[in-house]
């Protein structure tokens, strides 16, 4: 019998990951609906913030449009972590370990599911933003860059979710970590530009929080057009986090998927 190639392994596992994700409406729908609910609440409740001197736009909806892209990515962490944990708990990972599967193929296949969910989210949020009059200052190509950055952010948080699942082997642990991701979102420049945050400790945390730079990169494309520095920082934070999380998840997979 032939040995399956890496491409075949990645292909079948990616297909499984995407199919599995799309067949769980309870995982896909909240990741679309909840960020939009938060967007609606923020846009209607915090509109007076636009009157602050130095606020970058007169539409809080346009300012807040960046939030769903990151919040949706946080759901990717939950989705990826839960799927991986369920594979460990059910013994499916052992079934895969008994085939000639390479670990890298398993990781890449899993990431395909994260990216599929991330793509659905990003396209939905762009369409809704435009439909409700936000406009994208950087135009169509800017919208494509927003989608690309959203995918990198989804990848980063998805890999963190996978890492937690692979380290603990438990779906409950993944659920337990989920609120921490939201704390990271709230302790960023989510609600106000960093220079307008008056509380010192909050501004310091937001300055050190990579989520701030992810939001600001998307926000720059929506509000002001092409801003090289904001984009570089956003991609660097998302890409760096994705790389660290991917290395950590791959290492945890080596421990979890033991075979001689």
């Amino acid at each position: 019998m032939r040995r399956s190639t890496l491409a075949v392994q990645v292909g079948v596992l990616a297909r499984r990951s995407v199919v599995r994700t799309l067949r769980q409406p309870a995982m896909v729908v909240p990741s679309l609906v909840f960020p939009l609910i938060l967007l609606a609440i923020n846009a209607s409740g915090l509109d007076s913030a636009t009157r602050l001197p130095g606020f970058p736009t007169d539409s809080y909806f346009q300012f807040a449009l960046a939030i769903p892209f990151v919040q949706g990515a946080l759901f990717s962490a939950n989705s990826a972590g839960t799927n991986v944990a369920s594979d460990i708990e059910s013994g499916f990972l052992n079934r895969l370990a008994l085939t000639p599967l390479r670990r890298v193929a398993l990781m890449m296949g899993q990431l395909a599911g994260i990216l599929a969910l991330g793509l659905i989210q990003a396209v939905t949020f762009v369409v809704i933003g435009v439909a409700f009059g936000s406009g994208i200052a950087a135009g169509v190509s800017g919208a494509l860059v927003i989608i690309a950055l959203s995918l990198v952010i989804s990848l980063a948080f998805g890999c963190i979710g996978a890492f937690v699942a692979l380290r603990t082997g438990s779906g409950e642990a993944v659920q337990g970590v989920f609120p921490l991701f939201f704390a990271a979102l709230f302790l960023s420049s989510m609600a106000l530009p960093r220079n307008l945050i008056e509380t010192d400790w909050f501004r310091t945390v937001a300055d050190w929080n990579p989520v701030s730079y992810m939001l600001e990169a998307i926000r720059s494309l929506v509000i002001s057009g092409w801003d090289g520095e904001a984009l570089a920082l956003g991609f660097a934070c998302a890409g760096g986090l994705a790389l660290i999380a991917l290395v950590a998840a791959s290492s945890a997979l080596r421990t979890q998927m033991v075979r001689t």
């Binding site: 032939r2 399956s4 190639t5 895969l96 000639p100 599967l101």
Partner: peptide, 10 residues
Amino acid sequence: KLQTALHGMR
């Protein structure tokens, strides 16, 4: 399909 593909079957 998944199992046969991982075992390299045509």
